[in-house]
Every structure is written in structure tokens, then in C-alpha cells.
Simulated assay, not measured.
Amino acid sequence: MKDTWLFVDSGHCAPSFNMALDEALLNWHSLGKIPPVLRFYGWEPAGISVGFFQKVDGQIDLEGARKYGIELVRRQTGGKAVLHDQELTYSVIVSEEHPAMPKSIKEAYLVLSKGLLEGYKELKIDAEFATPGSAGMKTGSAVCFEEPSWYELVIEGKKAAGSAQTRKSGVILQHGSIPLEIDEIKLFDLFLYPSERAKERARKAFGNRAVAINDVLPSAVSFEQAKAAFKKGFEQGLDIDLQPYELPPLLLEEVSILEKKYKSEDWNNLRERKEVHQP
């Protein structure tokens, strides 16, 4: 018999709400109030999320973000900065003790990313898992989509989806970005470079390292179409049934409280952070 997980379709929400809801769902799952969760969402307004460790000063162009109306938020998970704009975002919340979850962070990535792989198959896109041999050279860039990590999805060697994972209170939280389109001009206007020439060189090189869904399909896929494909993909890849879940008032109250943290400068602009689980 297949395992039943909750499916949360929260639509397009503010960056602070998106991060607060992921944390609240993790808390509820850790307390045994809800089973594992798959959540799909978008961002309104667009956001740039920075990794738990990542410095903002000297890396992120806050003035550029304001110019575009993009809000900055710090994730619980590590990794590099991600522009969340024309994309489908997913999050998975599941206990570390779940029988399908390996103890190794790297291997848990592989298990959970099977849902992404099957989602791309639903869209007739030939994607595969990144491995150290296929990931290419490390760039040292602050931009997430410049280089894939273990078991992230690549299309013809280009990074197609970025994910990050942490473990807290016995629960795995993995969330990630599935771009439908990438606005390279906007993206690189959000990062600081020593000169305009350096920025332009980085932007041109980026095209050889990252790809979006609508770059490889003959007809553009909408947010709703991508959501349907990846929902089916996660059901197949993880061998689960998804049950729609309406967020109860008590959970939304917790989200409202947590959202204050994700809106605060103290949280979003801290320069140094202690170790967090990353592969």
C-alpha cells in the first residue's frame, strides 16, 4: 500500500510567507500533527533567497533588488542565492525516520529528487542527475544556478533545478526552484561585481551553465501545467499518494508569527552563521 502524503498548493505568496510556511509545516510534522508534506508555490512579489550561511554584504546588490521590486529573504537551508521569479517552487517535509529516507543527506537528495526527474519526464524533457563527474568546474559564484550539486537535475549538462536541504527536530526539509524562464539581465543585476565588464562576462558564461523549462520545449509551459506535471512526477518518483490539504487556522497563526522573523533585518542580513546540514 502506498504511503499517503499531504499536498499543499499555496499559490503565489510573499517571500517571508513562503519561508515561514515551510518552517511551520516542518514544526507540525515534527510534533506528529501531520504526515509528510509536498508543497508547491510561487512568489509574489518575486524574491531572492540567500542561503543560511551566505553573506549579503559584498555579494547581493540590494539597490538592484529594490529597483526590480524584489524582496530578499534568508532561507533555513544553505547554498547560494536564488532568484525566485518565473518558476515553480517545491518543498518536501518528511521525518528522518521515514523508512524511505536514507540516513545520508546525499542519498536523501537522490531519493527526493526522483520526484523532480519524473516531473521532467512528464513534460517530455530528458533530464538527468548531476554527479561530480558531470557537474563541471566550480565557479565560486554567489549565484545558485551557476553550478549543480549532487543529484540536482541537469539538461544536456546545464543545471535545470536547484535544491537545498536541512534537518531540524528530526525532520528533513528540502525545497527548491524549478525555473520556467530565467531573466539573465535581472538575475545578474542582483549581484555585485568588480566592474560592468566582469558582470557581463559572468552573465554570458551563465548561459552555458543553466537552463529553464521553456528554453527546451517547443511550446511554453505555464505555472499550472508545470505544477500538474511535477505533482504526478513526485507521486511516481516517491511512490506516494498525495492528499490535498487545506491549511488550518492554527497553522496559519503560527505562520504569521514566524513571518515576522523572515521579514526582519536581523534574520536576513546576518553575516555569519553556524553550521547547518548540507551535502
Rank of each mutant, 00 (worst) to 15 (best):
L117H: 13
A198N: 13
E96Q: 15
L173G: 02
E147D: 05
D189Q: 06
G115V: 07
F206K: 01
P148C: 11
N208E: 15
A130H: 08
K168Y: 09
E224T: 08
L110H: 13
P102G: 03
E184A: 14
S163P: 14
L217P: 03
Y151W: 14
A226Y: 12
S222K: 13
D183V: 02
S177L: 05
E128K: 15
G136C: 06
A161K: 03
K124M: 14
D215R: 13
I213G: 14
Y151K: 06
L153Y: 10
I125W: 13
V143G: 01
V154D: 07
A160W: 06
A220V: 10
H175K: 02
L187Q: 02
L173R: 03
E200R: 12
K204C: 07
S134A: 09
A160N: 08
I172G: 02
A127G: 11
G176R: 02
S219H: 15
P99D: 13
P194T: 01
K159G: 12
A108R: 00
A160P: 07
G115C: 13
E97P: 11
E97V: 04
F223M: 07
P132N: 05
P194S: 07
K124N: 15
K231Y: 12
R203E: 07
E97F: 08
A160Y: 05
S222D: 08
D215G: 15
E97S: 14
Y109A: 08
A130V: 04
C144L: 04
K114Y: 08
A161D: 12
P218L: 11
R201D: 03
G162Y: 05
D215H: 13
G162D: 06
E181L: 09
R201H: 07
S177V: 02
S195P: 13
K227C: 08
E128R: 13
K124P: 10
K186L: 15
E97G: 10
M101L: 10
V211S: 07
N208W: 15
E152M: 10
P179V: 08
L153D: 03
H98Y: 07
V221G: 01
K231F: 08
P194I: 02
S134P: 13
S149K: 10
E107F: 00
V111R: 04
V211N: 04
S163L: 00
S163T: 10
I155V: 15
